[in-house]
């Protein structure tokens, strides 16, 4: 009951959706839209709420036990509940939706964009370490990277040559590498999905 029934559910649902894909009938398409497109997001909403409950519990525990840096958990909780309130209540009471937009534009976007921009420094440090490796492979990687980066620079008479070389790298060897990776990823996803459907992969069930 605890382990066998979920395996039966996953096998039945998986097999049904695979068979459905090969049946070109309107009923089959109806089931696809109904079960695969409508239902999972609904379950996802409740799963997100589980995440919110978990975040709240962890934060409250840290505050109650006064663990290291517990004061920041208060900031997390305020951000979570104020933003949720602005969004949820703002949907029914429009004046509050302005506060939601304000928080999104002046808190969330600047912080997220700055965090991503910080990566420029860490990437530069990673490039320096790769340079120090002095291997053929690291050199190939960095030469390709530098040519691709230089296509955005004004280089006088060299601009056209660098631009064409960069385009060639992006459209030919880069395409070959990306396609090979994509084929590998595709085969990996299919084999893992088959392991899950057939009950070979059961780690998602947990221990007991």
């Amino acid at each position: 009951m605890k382990r066998q029934f979920p395996l039966i559910i996953i096998f039945s649902c998986g097999l049904f959706m695979v068979v459905q894909y090969f049946v070109p009938h309107e009923k089959s398409e109806f089931f696809y839209e109904f079960i695969a497109l409508d239902w999972p997001p609904i379950i996802g909403v409740f799963a997100l709420m589980l995440g919110v409950i978990s975040l709240t519990r962890v934060s409250i525990t840290r505050i109650r036990r006064k663990t290291e840096a517990w004061r920041y958990s208060i900031v997390t909780l305020i951000g979570l509940f104020v933003m949720s309130a602005f969004g949820v209540i703002g949907h029914h009471y429009p004046p509050l939706s302005t506060a939601f937009d304000w928080s999104f534009n002046n808190i969330m976007i600047p912080i997220s964009a700055t965090m991503f921009s910080l990566l420029a420094f860490f990437i530069a440090s990673a490039a320096y370490r790769a340079f120090r490796a002095r291997s053929v492979l690291a050199s190939i990687l960095l030469v390709a990277a530098i040519i691709v980066m230089m296509r955005f620079f004004p280089l006088g008479p060299l601009t056209s040559v660098v631009g064409k070389t960069s385009d060639w790298i992006l459209n030919v060897p880069n395409l070959a590498a990306k396609r090979a990776i994509l084929i590998g990823v595709g085969l990996g996803i299919v084999s893992t999905a088959m392991k899950v459907v057939l009950g070979i992969e059961r780690s998602y069930l947990g221990k007991d």
Partner: peptide
């Protein structure tokens, strides 16, 4: 950092609710 964690979670709660 802690503020953006909370605000992002709140943002997704609102988006999925609406």
């Amino acid at each position: 950092e802690h503020l953006v964690v909370g605000v992002s979670a709140g943002y997704w709660v609102s988006i999925l609710y609406v």
